[in-house]
């Protein structure tokens, strides 16, 4: 029998708190590079000015420790737990929520979560986070935190297409979602797409797609080409930075797929603004 590795829940809470703060103040290198490249290639003067402001905003956020965006999001957390991991010190989920509570309170992050979708009373500490667990081989625990702002979340869509709609139907669905999002989603956006699976699987794939580096194309050449084609078409839409017009509407289209049912073709489009944040740690 393989050795079990013990992970203390206190270490999980500590990591989660630190990652919430980190993700809200610093973009990953791939996002920074993509924004910087966009600043050079943008054709619209106003668009270029907006991209310049976004660069400046990132510098101020990092140097003065001010969140990149005031919408510090609802914390979406992916936890991949190696099946040889033994968790000690309490219930894992409590530790994760405790980490979110501490990160958002100690890190001066905005508390944007309400306890009930209809009575809308703020929970005051940004909990609960939305947590997705996955059991994987190995003896490590990988935690990815992606604080999700709702300007862009609100513009996300799911389409239950028919198999006969095919690739054209999928592309049209994605382009429709992006066009409808327009200036509301704080472009330049990152477009996370999930194709296949079931209703909820497609949405989860789309969310996960947003955590893939924007400079890494799909490993499948067919979908890699589709990502490239869609990115070019989206950037011909004219929406531009801030929706004020230009050639930079999206920084990347990331597509994830899964087998699906003979009768269905689910397509989920999870749109993220240019503050496509995440932090990753392996315990």
């Amino acid at each position: 029998m393989p050795e079990m590795k013990t992970i203390q829940t206190s270490a999980v809470a500590e990591a989660v708190a630190a990652m919430c703060i980190e993700a809200n103040h610093f973009l990953t290198d791939d996002m920074k590079a993509a924004l910087s490249r966009a600043g050079e290639s943008e054709i619209a003067p106003l668009g270029k000015q907006v991209l310049g402001q976004l660069q400046q905003n990132l510098e101020i956020a990092g140097e003065d420790h001010i969140p990149i965006c005031q919408d510090t999001g609802m914390a979406v957390i992916f936890v991949e737990i190696g099946q040889e991991v033994h968790i000690e010190g309490g219930f894992l989920e409590d530790a994760i929520q405790e980490g979110v509570r501490r990160g958002y309170t100690e890190g001066y992050l905005r508390k944007s979560v309400v306890r009930d979708p209809l009575d809308r009373v703020n929970t005051g500490d940004n909990t609960p986070a939305v947590i997705h667990y996955q059991i994987v081989p190995g003896d490590e625990m990988k935690i990815t935190i992606a604080p999700k702002g709702f300007g862009s979340e609100n513009m996300s869509r799911i389409f239950m297409l028919k198999p006969a709609d095919g690739a054209e139907g999928v592309k049209n669905a994605i382009l429709t979602a992006v066009r409808d999002a327009g200036p509301n989603a704080c472009p330049p956006m990152v477009v996370g797409v999930g194709i296949g699976g079931t209703f909820e699987k497609a949405a989860l794939l789309a969310k996960k797609a947003l955590t893939r580096p924007v400079d890494r194309r799909s490993a499948d050449p067919y979908y890699s080409a589709m990502e490239q084609e869609l990115l070019e078409r989206i950037n011909r839409s004219g929406i531009g930075p801030g929706g004020l017009g230009g050639s930079t509407t999206a920084l990347a289209v990331n597509i994830e797929t899964y087998p699906t049912h003979i009768a269905g073709l689910p397509v989920a489009v999870n749109i993220c603004c240019h503050v496509n944040r995440h932090a990753v740690r392996v315990l």
Partner: peptide, 9 residues
Amino acid sequence: AAVGGAGAL
């Protein structure tokens, strides 16, 4: 419009 996502600036 102010620039969305430029809250620090």
